[in-house]
């Protein structure tokens, strides 16, 4: 079956077509400005292998979407209500779906949400230490933003372990430009480093990650900056860029020869180790670490190191945590999941 995977961003939309049983794929990127025109052109370009299903990756589904959803009137209405929670990304998704339903008429469209996996995060993990009424009214809760990877990678890791899935304790480390660590206890996430937005958690390529909230207020006081300016500094000029003073990618950071990046690397390692320790405490231990994401190759450096650091004398030393890599790219993961969803809906 030909599955067209669409990954809308803010200004552009990545697409890829996965064919039947083969690993041959066509892929590209289109401008998000003229979606109608571009989708029509895409339909033309794919005339020899017309997509039979469309799978759309959606960055944010809040608490409304706890799993994949068929794009229809009710899911679109629910998505529209979520726009304020991801105001830069969801409008593009909505116009993509609108155009898609015109251009690819009668092609079923399935939505895959990065947040769905985290919709069942326990409240003790998802809630912040602020007034619960305020948090409720503003929809402030912690969730993750690489749920599709975490779900697939941890399932993969559990299969490799050969222990009952319910008892499996997995630390899932997603190495993307915005890296994210989740503790997964028997298929269910119990911690996540990201927050109400992707800004919290581990430092990313350009995002600051965890920060004393007072720093935000100090910048306002000392520099006279408004929230918009502070936001730009913290989301786009921070992270590895801010630490190293130049753009750095995760795999370069963990490459052996990167001596000049040692300080930035030390910061990230420190945060990763803390997050893993926290996840381990949350699960009462850890059986395996799994690395996914486009920079999963950094696992070669991180895996053995973390595994050693998470082994404790008089504790788990007889069963130190293993580590494995999950190398599947996101498009492939989504395409495979789309097949499963279709099979399930067909049998149901």
């Amino acid at each position: 079956m030909n599955i067209l995977v669409l990954k809308p961003g803010v200004r552009s939309i990545d697409w890829s077509l996965t064919g039947d049983g083969t690993r041959h794929t066509r892929a590209g990127q289109m401008d998000a400005a003229h979606i109608d025109r571009n989708l029509q052109a895409l339909r033309g370009a794919l005339a020899d292998a017309p997509p039979e299903t469309i799978a759309v990756r959606v960055n944010h589904g809040g608490t409304k979407f706890r799993g994949p959803a068929i794009a229809d009137a009710s899911s679109l209405a629910a998505l529209t209500e979520l726009v304020p929670e991801a105001p830069l990304h969801l409008p593009v998704v909505l116009s993509l779906l609108e155009s898609g339903s015109r251009v690819f008429q009668n092609v079923p469209t399935i939505l895959f949400f990065e947040t769905a996996f985290f919709s069942r995060l326990p409240r003790r993990e998802s809630a912040y230490g602020i007034d619960s009424d305020l948090a409720q009214s503003l929809g402030l809760r912690r969730q993750g933003y690489h749920g599709i990877y975490h779900e697939a990678a941890s399932a993969h890791a559990i299969r490799q372990l050969g222990i009952p899935p319910r008892r499996a304790r997995v630390l899932s480390i997603c190495l993307e430009p915005h890296p994210e660590i989740a503790a997964v206890l028997g298929n269910r996430p119990v911690t996540c480093t990201s927050g109400a937005t992707p800004l919290e958690g581990l430092p990313g390529h350009t995002s600051c990650g965890e920060l004393d909230p007072n720093i935000v207020l100090t910048l306002a006081r000392k520099l006279g900056w408004g929230p918009e300016q502070i936001n730009t500094a913290l989301t786009q000029r921070s992270g590895l860029l801010g630490l190293a003073g130049c753009p750095v990618m995760l795999d370069d950071l963990f490459a052996a020869e990167a001596a000049d990046l040692a300080p930035a690397r030390a910061v990230l390692e420190n945060r990763i180790l803390s997050a893993c320790g926290a996840g381990m405490a949350a699960m009462g231990g850890v059986d395996t670490l799994v690395f996914s994401g486009r920079f999963h190759t950094a696992a070669k450096a991180l895996g053995p190191w973390l595994s050693t650091r998470l082994t404790f004398r008089g504790g788990n030393e007889r069963h130190p945590p293993r580590w494995i890599g999950f190398e599947e790219p996101l498009d492939r993961v989504i395409a495979e999941r789309a097949q499963i969803v279709l099979l399930e809906s067909a049998t149901a």
Binding site: G129, E200, V216, A220
Partner: peptide
């Protein structure tokens, strides 16, 4: 005190109070 908090939440609260940090 709230302890750890997404910096974006502090920003959002600031914007909602019209910059009154």
């Amino acid at each position: 005190r709230c302890g750890d908090l997404d910096p974006a939440i502090a920003l959002r609260l600031m914007a909602l109070s019209e910059g009154d940090y």
